[in-house]
């Protein structure tokens, strides 16, 4: 790291600003997806991976999942992208823990996740990617 160390107050201020920016951006994106339905075609661009290959990637259906979750419809959210339903709570916990750390509390940090769990996540993501494209196995696909 070539950056010179900043004073503690400056680091705290920068952290608070990043947290505020990420929070506002996350809420704004969620509000847009909750309001403008991704279930209707033409509202959002098709994933370029799907458009080019005709295959579902691990993220396919995630906007529809967020839309359904914002409406409180967990069943539809699960139908569109079950992996997103499982991983989004982790993202929210990481966000909350980040906020707690900025308040000076001791809280969990994503860098504490053991390496083998992240490797396991990689295997799950790759297996999920393949499994969603198996013909007839529609329970993992976004349709």
């Amino acid at each position: 790291m070539t950056q010179r160390p900043a004073p503690a107050g400056e680091i705290r201020r920068r952290g608070a600003l990043s947290f505020a920016a990420v929070t506002v951006a996350g809420l704004a994106a969620t509000a847009v997806v909750a309001t403008v339905s991704p279930e209707e075609s033409g509202h959002y661009p098709t994933c370029p991976f799907l458009a080019v290959t005709g295959l579902y990637c691990p993220g396919c259906g995630s906007l529809r999942t967020v839309h359904a979750l914002a409406q409180g419809d967990v069943a539809t959210a699960w139908d569109r992208n079950p992996l997103a339903v499982l991983l989004l709570p982790l993202v929210l916990v990481a966000w909350a823990a980040w906020g707690l750390r900025l308040l000076g509390r001791r809280a969990w940090h994503p860098s504490r996740v053991p390496a083998r769990w992240i490797w396991a996540l990689l295997v799950v993501v790759l297996a999920y990617w393949v499994a969603r494209n198996v013909p007839g196995w529609t329970w993992l696909s976004p349709s």
């Binding site: 661009p45 994933c47 370029p48 991976f49 990637c57 691990p58 993220g59 995630s62 906007l63 992208n81 992996l83 997103a84 991983l87 989004l88 990689l122 993501v125 790759l126 990617w129």
Partner: peptide, 9 residues
């Protein structure tokens, strides 16, 4: 999950 292209993997 959200960036269209699976570069996140």
């Amino acid at each position: 999950l959200f960036c269209c292209l699976p570069l996140g993997v």
